[in-house]
Design a protein around this nucleic acid. Structure first.
Lengths: 206, 206
DNA sequence: ATGTTTCCACCTAGGTGAAAACTT
DNA sequence: AAGTTTTCACCTAGGTGGAAACAT
């Protein structure tokens, strides 16, 4: 095992639906968390290159704290950290601590399999605020905090072949129990097929 | 590795919905095969015991020929082998040759995981008659032939730990492109939730 | 004649945000 | 006041057998 293998140096991770994420990120992305678990929208969708065709890999997503603040949403100002007197409240939320992991259901699989996919979708991944939530693929978060998803590529066809973590800043989001920014709600309705019922016929996208 | 391990001697495989299969088997079970793939009904549903809690296992289903005949359905007689003059036509269909394998989507997993499940369901497994069918989990069969599903339990946490094959004769079925025996159709409609639209309100089950 | 393919109405299953009720 | 939970109409997504068209 060489140092090169240990970090999977040649592996490239691409965020397929980067433009969609970017549109939400500009507004401050919000994701609903519920007792039974709710999907993310947009979905995490990646593609991979630079894997060893014959190697075996597990692909996972996890979610870390983006910072250690608690936030509130003020319509005129947007998302601002909660202040206690003159300084921001620092909580025990540490970045690099994972709040839960979702293994892609096609894992484990060969490098060839992962690379030939146009899109590796984490659409069944769900978010909850209930610690006792047993829904499959559910990650437990706290409301009114900011989170950062990550993608893990782990080679497993021999011990200690290493892994790689990819972080896309445009996928950061606030966990909420109901939407705060009405612009976010509108963008969800316009783009999520399951929210089609709420689309205003005057402002339909082609 | 002992001889005992090699055949996973203590492993018990139980057909959870045996009664449903039996009801169909009495009539001569038929399964529709289509270009895009069609689920089996009843679904293969098993439970397992006698696994090593800490071992890792792959659970698969596959389908073999039940015999080497071609069949036709005669309403007055039922399913009879096609005759050529006075003797049955013998084809190249050999039992013990698998026509396709469907790996349970939770594979691989621990003995503990598999044993704690009340029902390990192969409901996403599909049957097709189109060799070029790329639908995930699709097994290619020939129409008007008799088939025998099998369950495979393979231990994989070390090389050559062996495997076990379980065969339930009540799960034998005829592959068809449209139902032949109207009694089979009726039993499907009464028991498959997706066929509820065709239930006669006079003969509903409670 | 016999078997196959395509299309369809009618279901199951489950993912949306809205709104009202609830909690603290 | 601020945030959470529940319920709901309205969608997407996809599994049924029937019937008509098609193939050989």
């Amino acid at each position: 095992v060489t140092a090169t293998n240990c970090i999977l140096q040649d592996v490239q991770v691409h965020l397929v639906n980067r433009e969609m994420w970017h549109a939400f990120s500009n507004l401050g992305t919000e994701m609903i968390i519920t007792r039974i678990g709710r999907r993310l929208f947009p979905t995490l969708e990646i593609s991979l290159s630079g894997l060893d065709s014959d190697g075996r890999y597990i692909i996972k997503a996890d979610i870390t704290a983006a910072d250690n603040h608690r936030y509130k949403y003020i319509p005129a100002s947007g998302w601002v950290p909660v202040q206690n007197g003159n300084h921001a409240v620092i909580t025990s939320h540490n970045s690099n601590v994972s709040f839960g992991t979702y293994e892609h259901p096609d894992s484990p699989n060969t490098g060839k399999f992962w690379m030939k996919a146009n899109s590796i979708s984490f659409k069944k991944m769900k978010l909850s605020n209930d610690k006792s939530c047993k829904t499959k693929g559910c990650i437990i978060l706290n409301s009114m905090r900011k989170y950062q998803p990550r993608i893990h590529i782990m080679r497993i066809d021999a011990p200690n072949l290493g892994s790689r973590i990819a972080v896309f800043p445009e996928t950061r989001f606030f966990a909420v129990t109901s939407y705060q920014n009405v612009q976010v709600t509108k963008l969800k309705i316009q783009n999520n097929p399951f929210a089609k019922a709420f689309r205003d016929s005057n402002s339909q996208l082609t």
